[in-house]
Design a protein around this nucleic acid. Structure first.
Lengths: 236, 236
DNA sequence: ACCTGAACACCGTTCAAGT
DNA sequence: ACCTGAACACCGTTCAAGT
């Protein structure tokens, strides 16, 4: 999981760095990482940068724009190069990138919710989209189906991480997923087996909904669907 | 799309209704429906009920509990009976329920984000889970795979609605999806075709990512995957 | 159990002003 | 362009008190 401090935060020679949007975003991500999603505020960012709250509006139109900038930053941490092919199989490329993106989001759980509320409209989103469409065309889908499959995967990765993070306090590092699954299992054994027999019988599996294994299973299901469509298209 | 006023909000004979959790949740949903997700606050609910802000804590432990109660309420508006079988095919039952749930969420877009941040832990979630596991077992999956597929579908419905709503102001009724797709298309035609050729070529389809058609396509892909796994299992 | 009154430590944002 | 000072209209939550 990418554990890189953002570039402008790292030690560097020369004069004291001036305040710019990158530094504002660095600070926003740092706050999120220290206190979870509720720790991000315009005032907290300003406070940490030693300026007045309203001075933030020099760099960002409003809180929503700050959140979009955070989304862009975190998205940029997952290497889109993993999507490029076709040296590796399209399936491998997709699972590699999806896992990388999930990893980056789990490294910054406080930012995960923002992906569901602040539309991804930055440059990174375009590169991700372009890479995914190309990958699914490599897989044999029509351009239109490749576009649709792109969105399916985006929804799935972002949705599953957001739901996973929602069960935590949002502060990294998250508890090991085995611990979180164990806690879920303890809760799930409380459900009355007489009224929810199937849930009771599958509690072990439901406990693992918020794990890498479930994530991989979901992706496999999706990609089987993609492969089937590609195969059907070749037969046409 | 279910357009039912919540029961305790409808006219009823008898003495003035007393203040209880149901009325608090009614009010919370009403605020969300009038002002979008940002309109929900402990103070606003109290204000509308004519009590002091802190009096809300008689009914709810904190804001998070209020949000979970809203999630439970909205979830309860989608008829879980649609999952029950097996008179109708499992595929039909699933698409019917998924569409109903999506419809209810789009009717209350301000609540959609809450599903990604406030874990569904109420009774309705249990009934939905039980119904989905049963449905996927009817489809021919093993109990464990039925549990996994249940989560895949939940992630997908909640994730896709949240992303769809994120592009709106969150106040119902949402603009017709054809309008929203048209606006997206206008934006997408701005992307430089030389650096994002595939995105440019599929802009028409990407514009429709936030529509019922895309939702149905996604579900179809998922269910094809499910059918393939069920078939493989029968051959074992 | 259900509510008020008062307070604490916060929010995002605007406006006018200074350099 | 970048920042301060002051203000406005908000937040969630706690505590002590009243019925």
């Amino acid at each position: 999981m990418a554990k890189n401090a953002s570039p402008s935060e790292s030690a560097r020679p020369g004069p004291a760095r001036s305040l710019d949007l990158e530094r504002v975003v660095d600070t926003a991500v740092a706050l999120l990482d220290e206190g979870g999603s509720s720790a991000l505020s315009v005032r907290a960012v300003a406070g940490r940068l030693g300026i007045q709250p309203n001075a933030i509006y020099t760099y960002v139109a409003d809180r929503a724009a700050l959140e979009r900038a955070v989304v862009e930053r975190v998205l940029s941490l997952a290497d889109v190069g993993l999507l490029a092919g076709p040296a590796r199989s399209w399936r491998r490329r997709l699972t590699d990138y999806a896992s990388a993106l999930r990893g980056v989001l789990l490294d910054h759980p406080g930012a995960a919710v923002l992906f569901m509320s602040a539309p991804m409209d930055g440059p990174s989103a375009l590169f991700v989209g372009e890479g995914l469409v190309g990958l699914f065309m490599d897989a044999g889908l029509s351009p239109d189906d490749a576009s649709r499959a792109t969105y399916t995967v985006i929804v799935h990765v972002l949705g599953s991480v957001a739901l996973e993070v929602a069960e935590t306090d949002g502060r990294p590092p998250l508890a090991p997923e085995s611990d979180r699954a164990r806690d879920r299992y303890a809760l799930l054994t409380q459900v009355p087996a007489d009224v929810f027999p199937l849930s009771a019988a599958t509690a072990r599996t439901a406990a693992e909904w918020v794990t890498t294994a479930q994530f991989a299973w979901d992706l496999g299901l999706l990609l089987d669907g993609v492969a089937a469509r590609a195969k059907a298209r070749r037969r046409e």
